[in-house]
Write a protein that binds this DNA or RNA. Structure first.
Length: 364
DNA sequence: AACCTAAGCAACCGCCGATTG
DNA sequence: GCAATCGGCGGTTGCTTAGGT
């Protein structure tokens, strides 16, 4: 026989999450770490499916998530990557550490698709986004070639590095991980890897409370509407309010708690972040959330944890598992190049050139 | 002010590969 | 080895809000 069911489908709550549920979930994850989702509903008392819990954590509560408007750079990166990878949102999201695949998918479906359509139907000449697989020309073989060659080289290097790393590692789950704030769960999808996970003393999840605080910020902000609505409607307005609040931040720096906390305080009269800080006993909140640049590999251990947690793979390009912090992820070479701010302009230039679908074959 | 429509987002659904008993 | 479940992913739906008439 197989494993027992994670949760009975009867009595499972659906619909928008309430702040109370969020708090329960964050508290649980803070104590036990992400993963082993099937035990979450039973251990927390949440009447949610394990899948729902995972999704909620991954898409909203996980620290380091940036919400709101996509920057031009992000937009172009998405366009590039979508042209290369297709609708592999998880893979694309791995290059945008602060964005979730769901967010990127929504953004693509609601904004970029339309934008591309418009541009294609309008002027297909000098558009900066004419590089999708739907609208390429053959005028820029050089740049495309450069792009492909570079990708190929990076992928080869990454694969080699991965092999080396695995050889050195002895293909054993790393028991030598630093005790705190070093990814305890590099493979979150595998419950077995979470065994022995002891992150309760780690402040890794600290910025979860920041996320919750932001959620509550919107929630507190809209008491009048919520008071007359059902719980679900209330929660829904919460999420939208939260989004609207966060949408004002268009750069990573804008998403830092140092920027948002005062805002929350000024609007609600309550320092919610502080409240959560005391609630969970979190520390170093500001530091934990200000490292939200495009540099997951070089960021804080926390950043790497949460990147690994939800963006574990890049279509087999060579994401490592069980590495220690000194062993830079092999695929970060490719990633670094893609995310290297110094090269952003060059990449944006590349975005102006068409790609052919064959590029996608590089990843297969 | 009321109604209608479109846009945007959060969450769910279903499938697939991996894992476990 | 088999069957059942888990976790992850992409597609889709449904609800809320904003904008227009």
């Amino acid at each position: 026989m197989g494993r027992p069911p994670c949760c009975d489908k009867v009595g499972v709550k659906k619909g928008p999450w309430t702040p109370e549920e969020d708090i329960m979930l964050v508290t649980y994850v803070q104590e036990h770490g992400p993963g082993n989702w099937r035990s979450v509903p039973t251990n927390t008392g949440l009447r949610r499916c394990s899948k729902s819990c995972r999704l909620r954590w991954t898409n909203y509560l996980r620290p380091g998530i940036k919400r709101g408007n996509f920057t031009d750079q992000e937009e172009k990166m998405i366009i590039q990557l979508q042209a290369l990878l297709g609708n592999k949102w998880a893979a694309i999201a791995s290059y945008l550490p602060e964005r979730t695949d769901n967010d990127i998918k929504n953004f693509w479906n609601t904004h970029l698709k339309k934008k591309l359509k418009k541009l294609q139907s309008g002027s297909s000449d000098n558009s900066t986004i004419s590089s999708t697989k739907n609208g390429f020309s053959s005028s820029s073989a050089i740049s495309k070639g450069q792009w492909e060659r570079r990708l190929q080289t990076d992928i080869k290097t990454a694969k080699q590095a991965l092999q080396d790393a695995l050889t050195l590692d002895g293909s054993k789950p790393s028991p030598v991980l630093p005790d705190s704030c070093t990814s305890p769960d590099l493979n979150p999808g595998k419950p077995g890897n979470n065994n022995g996970l002891s992150s309760s003393s780690c402040t890794t999840y600290a910025s979860s409370c920041e996320n919750i605080a932001r959620l509550l910020q919107g929630w507190v902000k809209t008491p009048s509407s919520s008071s007359v609505k059902s719980e679900q409607s209330k929660s829904s307005s919460t999420q939208h309010s939260f989004y609207n609040a966060a949408a004002t931040a268009t750069t990573p720096a804008d998403c830092t708690s140092s920027d948002e906390t005062p805002s929350a305080e000024s609007k609600t009269g309550i320092d919610l972040t502080e409240a959560f800080e005391s609630l969970f006993g979190f520390q170093s909140l500001v530091e934990s959330s200000t490292s939200s640049e495009f540099s997951p590999a070089s960021g804080s251990p926390e950043a790497s944890i949460f990147q690994d947690e939800s963006k574990p793979d890049l279509v087999g390009v060579g994401v490592q598992e069980h590495q220690n912090p000194q062993q830079i992820p092999p695929f970060s070479m490719l990633e670094k190049w893609l995310l290297d701010e110094g090269a952003i302009q060059a990449k944006l230039d590349l975005a102006n050139f068409p790609f052919e679908e064959e590029s996608a074959s590089l990843f297969q």
